[in-house]
Structure formats: structure tokens, C-alpha cells
Simulated assay, not measured.
Amino acid sequence: MNKEATTKLSVTAYIPYSCEQMPLEEQLQRDLQQMTRYYENYTELKTNIKQSEHTSYKNIIHHIHSAKKRSLNIQRSS
């Protein structure tokens, strides 16, 4: 299989920490929880957008096909 065909886009987010000023364990846990929420919100948003795009695409295709059928019916009745 082509390597390009299997490559997918991804998103990476992080909070930079310096070795000299590393936060306490509690802060690291809060940051991890927050980053996890960000990721969950992001994936939910992307999923909803894809579903919306798919629905819109299906509606467009349906509209085109129904317009074709109407056009054919008008031509046959003339």
C-alpha cells in the first residue's frame, strides 16, 4: 500500500515546562485533565463537522437526483 494513502493528519498540543521550574504533581495532574478535556472537545467537534458535511453531501446528491427525475418526468409528459 502507498505510504501517502495511509498517512493521516493529527493534532498535537502540549504545555511547555522548564526543568528549572517544574510544577508540582497536583498541577501536572490538573494540566493533564485539562488537556484531555481539550482533546475530547476537539474530537467531538471534528466528528460533528464530518457528520454535518456528510449529511450536507447526501442532501446535495438527493437534490440533484430528484431534480433529474423531475426533469425527466417533465420531458416525458411533453
Rank of each mutant, 00 (worst) to 15 (best):
30 R>W: 11
74 I>N: 06
61 I>A: 11
54 H>D: 10
52 S>T: 15
47 T>R: 14
43 T>W: 03
22 M>N: 02
34 Q>S: 06
24 L>T: 09
65 H>V: 09
41 N>I: 05
14 Y>S: 15
76 R>K: 15
73 N>A: 11
36 T>D: 05
38 Y>I: 15
60 I>S: 04
59 N>R: 12
20 E>D: 02
37 R>S: 09
40 E>F: 13
32 L>S: 09
53 E>F: 04
53 E>D: 15
70 R>F: 02
10 S>M: 04
66 S>R: 09
31 D>T: 10
72 L>F: 06
44 E>N: 12
40 E>S: 14
31 D>E: 13
21 Q>F: 14
47 T>L: 11
11 V>C: 09
70 R>Y: 03
5 A>E: 09
14 Y>D: 02
60 I>G: 00
10 S>G: 13
75 Q>D: 00
35 M>F: 13
3 K>G: 00
7 T>K: 11
32 L>H: 12
57 Y>E: 05
18 S>M: 04
6 T>F: 10
47 T>H: 12
12 T>W: 00
57 Y>C: 07
9 L>R: 03
11 V>H: 07
73 N>P: 03
17 Y>V: 12
44 E>P: 00
24 L>V: 10
48 N>S: 12
7 T>A: 12
70 R>C: 05
31 D>K: 05
11 V>A: 10
63 H>A: 09
73 N>V: 04
58 K>V: 02
71 S>C: 08
30 R>H: 13
60 I>A: 06
52 S>E: 15
48 N>F: 05
11 V>L: 06
15 I>E: 04
67 A>H: 01
54 H>Y: 13
74 I>V: 12
45 L>P: 01
55 T>N: 13
2 N>V: 03
23 P>V: 01
24 L>H: 06
30 R>F: 07
59 N>Y: 10
38 Y>W: 11
28 L>K: 15
65 H>C: 07
62 H>V: 00
1 M>E: 13
51 Q>D: 13
57 Y>I: 00
7 T>I: 13
22 M>Q: 05
49 I>L: 15
73 N>K: 03
67 A>T: 14
74 I>F: 07
31 D>V: 08
78 S>F: 05
2 N>P: 08
9 L>Q: 05
